[in-house]
Each structure stands twice: as structure tokens, then as C-alpha cells.
Design a protein around this nucleic acid. Structure first.
Lengths: 348, 348
DNA sequence: TTGTAGGCGTTATCAA
DNA sequence: TTGATAACGCCTACAA
């Protein structure tokens, strides 16, 4: 409930109250109902002449129907909330592009809700209020919402699209993508001969979205293959800190150590930390990151990393969108399109 | 106009129509008007007992007032649109945190609109529709909107907050921040003894937001100091490409060359490209980036870069928010707080 | 101190 | 083929 004092009138005084459907109706010499019908595509049942008049009037007046009015009448707005995970997503832009491209073609308006850092609790409440207030046509989760939350939102009557639900799979789809990242990392390290594996978080972000899931995947593989249960540690993204962290994990070890990293940044920090300590990569330690932008590939040594194909991993969501709203199905991806693949670098 | 077929009813059937103010009124045994008043802070004029009843009822029913209804009645919603620039903003999260922290304390809900890649034209239209439809309480521009657009939105009656306008300064505030980045880069390179300077864009992103402005700053300094007008070139974020690009600019040169880069990624790519070609940094070429995450600081050699302090550079916007809506002014920053500073690394 | 009534812009229903 | 009319949920003068 805004405490707001009226924002100072900044612009020129002719504050043009935007055109309403009544204005359009008047301008076209028809009734509001007609305007509504025509503008909603019920063109077939009107004289072409009438249709034109209405459209023209609307165009001339720059009429955009009020979301409020429409939402009120329909019980649901045309907004789709895209929930961005509280992760440093280097390519949020691209994701939004892909998703909202589909949706806007269907006449929806995408609005992004970025989860704030705070407690999960607070964040959840904020989103809940947003949903309750906006009555969106849908909620697109990129994978950061828990199943409980998803169900709660669905229960609101708001269709929910998420990797977890959209794929029709069981509750595991989302965890699975991230667990898979971990698994791929672990398998690669193991294949490369590292018999002991640890997991590296970014300092201060151990609870970063999906961190646990990814490490879970690593543990998974280790357990199945009879390796010792992986330890984990935090890496500050700053030379001294990274060096110290690395030194600490290596203390007392003799056999080569494989390090699966939460992100490419963490991995790069470790790689250079190692170099500056005389630890040889990949002989003494193997380091594999998680692709998060080009960083890892423009440095030398080139980072070994796990790449998640955006197009592929989003195709589940895009399909779900198409199914839910009757849009066009996204292009079918070649069978060999892999969501996760290893970028073979020089560090593991 | 959504073509949407009704989204399949997914959840259990007890689709709880959310509580309305009428429900709350009934539940509390008062009239809807009373509910409205109380919930909007007109507490003083009611019996404390009544106030409690209402609040309790609202809480019990999980009542959240409909944005639609409110917007319709008020002519303006409680949403504030935060326009994110079409740039890879590593820390969009942080920015949103800072800005929406202020706003949410005032009862507004922040919603992010990320400009898509497409043509400026299309993007502008999308935003325009969003504004027209949402009738937001305000529009916070992070600096990607042109003055014309800003004015157009203001004209809609929507208070606009932006670096350009918020600071009360002339049209230059925003350009200035970016031009300053360029100027600082150029000055640093010049001070370090590079007598010829060029500008490096990221390949495929020459039109990235602010790229021109930044290069403008570089040219500015060069001109004023009598250096030759800087050339510019594109750097692919990939080892081979970067190497080739570097080779091309260096061809035929003999004196040390200073390179001001659009981003740290570009800078890092060049640094490693140079290393692999036997070009010595910083002796043969000096490279200075623009801080965009920790990348530059975790590699060796540590990148010399220009750092833009988010807190400081956002304080203009936060102040504008406070002034516009009567919130609390952001903490006064120490005088020496510099928006832009040079991170002294080993590459220039 | 509380309630009544009218209107905000749109859509759906039904009558003309 | 069109147009009245009644919701939708909320806010606010104004009346009680």
C-alpha cells in the first residue's frame, strides 16, 4: 500500500488520458461492445466495413486495451510471469528472448520476476503476492521453484510451466538436469583417472540455486563407482582466496584430485590459483567447470567444462508453452542434440 | 490477443477462487468500504477493534487485493517497471535487489522488463504496450532508453526515473557515465605511455548498449590530447578469433598500442591471444577492460580494468525514487566514493 | 465510526 | 449484424 506522495507532474500539462474503448467506439460510430468484439478477433460476424472502421479508429487513437479492465472482466490477465532463478545467469537475456518470443506471438506479455537474494521464505511470499495480484495467464519457472511452490501456484488457478512439470516427467526433471551436470562432471573426472573427487562451491553462494543438486550428482556417481564420498569447499573469486582454498583441500593429499566446480568462474580461479602455487593442472589436480559464458574458453589453459545447451534445455518449456496455449511447437531438435556435453579443455 | 485455448486444468478441482475484499468484509462482519479503508492505512479513523478484525480476516483468508481492480479504480497500478538494458549485465540480480528493495518498502511491486535483442523499434513498441497496459506507478530506466522514449513515457502520465532524468542533469547524465568509462580508459592508457589507442568491441555486439558512448569517451580524450583518432575492431570471444583480430590490428605497427575494451571478456580474450602470439603485455600492447564480473581478476596476468561502482551509480536512481515517492533517501555516500575507478592490474 | 453508491475499462450474455 | 446491460474487484465521496 503505497505511501506515495503523488509523483511530481513532470511533463507538459496535456496529460493525455489514454484512449478507452469508449473513445474508439465513439470515433468509429459504433458501440463499445462492437469494438470489443472486433478487436478480439470476432471479425467474421461483422461487416468488413465496420471492422475497418473500428480498426482504423483504434489505430488513430493509439488505443491499447487496459490490462486492468481486461483482467477484471476475465478474471485473468494476459501477463505471463517468468521466474528467473536467483543465480547469476549470464544469459538471462537469451532465455527471455526465447521464451517471450513464443509467448508474445500468442498475445501474452512476459514480465520477469527476479528472485531476490533474501530468504527463500520472503522470496516465495513476494512471488505469491505478485501472482495473486496479477492473476497471470501463466507462470514460467526456469527451475528454481520447489514442487510445493509450483503446486501452490497451480492451485491458485494459474497454469504453471516448469522443467519439472512441463516435461510431464516426475518430480525429478529439474533436479535431474542439475544432477546430470554433476554426474557428467564426475564421470569425466573419473574417466580421466582421478580417483578422488571434491566439489567446489563459490564462496558465499553455497546455497546458490542448484548447487546442492549438482553436487548431488557428483556424489551419486562417486558412490556408484565406489569412490570416497566427495568433500566440498568454498572458493572465493579472488586470487589470494582461491589459492588458499586450493592449498587447504590439497593439504596432505598425494594422489591426483579431481575438482568439479559450480561454475566456470570458480574453476578458472582454481586453475590460476594452482598455477601460482606450482600445482600442475591437470596432472596433480583435474578441474572441470560448468559453462557460464565464454570465460573458460578464452583463457589459457582452456577450461574443461560442462556445457548446457540453452535451446535444448528450454525446448521442454517451449513445448509446454505450446501445449498449454496452443501455439506452434518449437522446432524439433536433432536426436543427437545433447542437453549436456563436455567441453574438452586442458584442465581435466 | 491470446489465441489461447484454456490451459488444461492441471491441479485438483477445488480451484479456490481467491478471496475478494467482499469476502474479507463478510468474514470480519463489516462493509467492503471499511475493509478498503483499513487496508489502505486509514486506521486512525476506526475503532482499533475494527481494524484488528479486518486485518485478521484478511490474514486468515490470505487476501491480496487484485491489481486489476485497484488499477482500474485508481487509474494507475502499483507496479514499477524496471527496464533492463539489452546488455549482458552480470549483476542484474544485485541491481534489482537494490532498486526493488527501496520500492517494495513503499508498497510497490517491481517487475522487470528485459529489452530483447531485436530492433530498437520493436523493443520500444513492446515496452510501450506494457506501459500502456499495466499503467505502472513508475518506470525505472537503467539507462538504455533514449530521451525521446523517456519523454514519450512521461507523457503517458507515467513518472519516469532514469539516470538521465533523475539526476536533474541535462540529457547527458547517462551518456556521461559511459563516456566517462571510455575517458578513464583512455587516460589510463595514455598515462601508461601508449601513444596510440584503439577500441575493441565484442564481435557481433558492436551495437551493444553503450558501446558507442564508451568509445566516444575514448575518442574524446584522444582528440583533446592530440593523439590519432582511435580505430576500432571486433573481438570474437574465442581463442582463435581473438588472436586473429589482434594480429590484424597490430599488423604494421611498431609503437606500443593501447587497447580499450568494451568488456573484461574482450580484454581477457585479447590478453591470452597476445600471449599465444608472443606479443608482450603490457610492453607491446596495453589492455584495459571494463569491469563485468570477477573474471578479469582471477586470471593471470590480472587484468587492468575500469570499475563502476553499482551502489554509487545507482544512488542517483535511488535518490530519484525517494524524491518521487517520498521514501527514505539512500545512505549518503562518502564524498570520496567514486563511481568509476581504475583497477590496477598487470595488463596496462 | 461506518455504510451506500457510483464509477474505473473490459467482456459476456442476451435481446433487438 | 449490432447494441444494451450486467458483472468483475476495488476505491472514495458523501451520507448516515
Amino acid at each position: 500500500m503505497p505511501t506515495a506522495g503523488r509523483p511530481t507532474d513532470t511533463a507538459a500539462g496535456d496529460r493525455a488520458r489514454s484512449a478507452t474503448s469508449a473513445d474508439v467506439a465513439r470515433h468509429a460510430g459504433v458501440s463499445r461492445a462492437t469494438v470489443s468484439h472486433v478487436l478480439n478477433g470476432q471479425v467474421e460476424r461483422f461487416l468488413p466495413e465496420t471492422v475497418d472502421k473500428v480498426r482504423q479508429a483504434a489505430a488513430e487513437l493509439g488505443y491499447v486495451r487496459s490490462a486492468a479492465g481486461r483482467a477484471l472482466a476475465m478474471g485473468r490477465s494476459d501477463f505471463v510471469i517468468l521466474v528467473a532463478p536467483p543465480t547469476t545467469l549470464t544469459n538471462l537475456q537469451d532465455i527471455v528472448d526465447l521464451v517471450s518470443g513464443d509467448l508474445e506471438k500468442l498475445g501474452f506479455t512476459v514480465v520477469v520476476h527476479v528472485s531476490r537474494a533474501e530468504s527463500a521464505q520472503v522470496t516465495s511470499t513476494r512471488l505469491h503476492n505478485l501472482v495473486e495480484a496479477l492473476r497471470p495467464a501463466g507462470l514460467v519457472d526456469l527451475g528454481s521453484l520447489s514442487e510445493d511452490e509450483l503446486l501452490k501456484f497451480q492451485h491458485t488457478g494459474c497454469p504453471v510451466i516448469s522443467p519439472t512439470i512441463g516435461t510431464g516427467g516426475p518430480r525429478t526433471a529439474r533436479d535431474d538436469l542439475n544432477a546430470s551436470i554433476g554426474r557428467v562432471q564426475a564421470r569425466h573426472l573419473h574417466r580421466r583417472g582421478y580417483r578422488e573427487i571434491v566439489y567446489a562451491f563459490e564462496a558465499g553462494h553455497r546455497d546458490a540455486t542448484w548447487g546442492r543438486e549438482r553436487m548431488g550428482g557428483v556424489m551419486d556417481v562417486c558412490e556408484r563407482r565406489g569412490l570416497t564420498k566427495p568433500a566440498y569447499f568454498d572458493v572465493p573469486l579472488e586470487p589470494g582466496g582461491a589459492r588458499a582454498a586450493l592449498a587447504a583441500v590439497l593439504r596432505g593429499r598425494v594422489t591426483p584430485l579431481g575438482i568439479a566446480c559450480y561454475s566456470d568462474e570458480v574453476a578458472v580461479a582454481l586453475v590460476f590459483g594452482a598455477a601460482s602455487t606450482g600445482v600442475h593442472v591437470p596432472r596433480d589436480v583435474g578441474i572441470i567447470g560448468t559453462y557460464s559464458g565464454p570465460v573458460g574458453q578464452i583463457v589459457s589453459p582452456r577450461l574443461t567444462s560442462v556445457y548446457v545447451d540453452l535451446r535444448v534445455s528450454l525446448s521442454g518449456i517451449r513445448t509446454a508453452i505450446a501445449e498449454t496455449y496452443g501455439g506452434i511447437l518449437p522446432p524439433v531438435l536433432p536426436a543427437e542434440a545433447r542437453v549436456i556435453s563436455v567441453v574438452e579443455g586442458e584442465t581435466a
